[in-house]
Amino acid sequence: MRPTLIASACLLSAGLAHAAPAPAPTRLDHILLWGHGIDQITSVMAVKLGFQVRPGRDPDGVANRYIRLADSSFIEILGITRPNPKFDPGMKEDQEALKGGPGSRAFGFRSSRLDAIRSTLQAKQYAVTPFFSGPDSAKPGWRLFAFDKAPLSSNTFFIDYKADYAPDQFDPANTADYRVTREHPNGARELSSIWLVSADADADRKQLENMGLGHAVPVKLPELGARGFCVPVGPTALLALQPDGAGLAAQAMAAGPRILGVSYGVTDLGRAQRWVERGYQQKLTTYRGLSGESVLAPTVDDLGLSVEFHALKPGGSPCPAA
């Protein structure tokens, strides 16, 4: 089974038992993003936003495709391709929560220490699942575990990959293909942050700290009408947010907790901005975000979440100073 089917099916969590901190994951890995349909979401990501979209598979009427970045993170996009598709339980849950519309309710942490993390979480009374691997038993390329009850307001899982796992290439030894598939017209190079929204950002912060992800920094995002916490995860950041007055966060929460948005570093912010402006036929204004000069693409109707681009910044903490 592949990460999409397990991650969206098996997710959920437990109370705050006292035990040694879990080993911190290396970074945020990817989100699972549903579109109105697989071709619709592919068009939005490629034409309106300037990403290169790679092929995936289409088992039982639910197709997936990939957007892979130079920092090894990616976006897995999902769409229904025929009437009466066969959903696994997690997909059915996603579709019911999203009311058949676009959006994301699941994301992954990556770590090479899955066994240690899972053992520590078990000791803290989190109801973790067994390990799952894929894409098939003959040649597994990834391994993950999730939760039988979500510890956070959005579903999450922990995943790791074999060094030679390359699902978007026929020949893993072809380094030129590997490089080219991670180059995007909009200049996107890295995943900077994933933004969760719920009615209680501090509850997410406490769970993250109990799971071994501390050092939260209070943040306020007026562009989203949100406030909460920025939690560093290696070179990336997980934002635990809640609405702060009117705005995109309050609009999203009207439909329930979910992933509010994602942020990507680009080589040329002006180029990314021009691409989105052409795609959406409207002028955009830059602002000073958590990652510096940024622009917010108007993607909520198309994707059910916001996409932010910001100029790449060298080194430093993924969260602002307290």
Score class of each variant (00 low, 15 high):
T181W: 13
G50R: 06
L12P: 15
D136W: 03
E183I: 07
N174D: 10
V233I: 10
G108S: 15
A97R: 14
P102Q: 03
L114R: 00
H184Y: 09
R54G: 15
L208I: 04
G304R: 02
Y161W: 10
L49W: 02
R27F: 09
K149V: 12
N64E: 06
P185D: 11
P102N: 04
Q122K: 01
P135N: 00
P235I: 13
Q122W: 01
F145P: 07
L114V: 00
T286D: 13
L241I: 01
N174E: 07
I41L: 03
Y126C: 10
L260M: 00
Y66H: 14
Q125N: 09
A19L: 06
M253K: 00
C10S: 14
P59V: 01
H215I: 13
R179V: 12
L269Y: 00
E277L: 09
P232M: 13
A246K: 04
E93C: 15
R113W: 05
V266W: 03
T181S: 14
P3L: 05
A9R: 07
P135T: 01
I77V: 10
V276F: 02
S294G: 11
A216E: 05
L290H: 12
R189E: 14
L5R: 15
E76Y: 07
P89L: 09
A22F: 02
G228S: 08
F158L: 01
R189H: 15
A173N: 12
A173R: 11
N186Q: 05
Q273E: 02
V266Q: 04
Q95N: 09
W142P: 04
M253I: 00
L78A: 00
G15K: 10
R182T: 12
D71F: 09
L239G: 07
R65M: 03
G304N: 03
L221K: 05
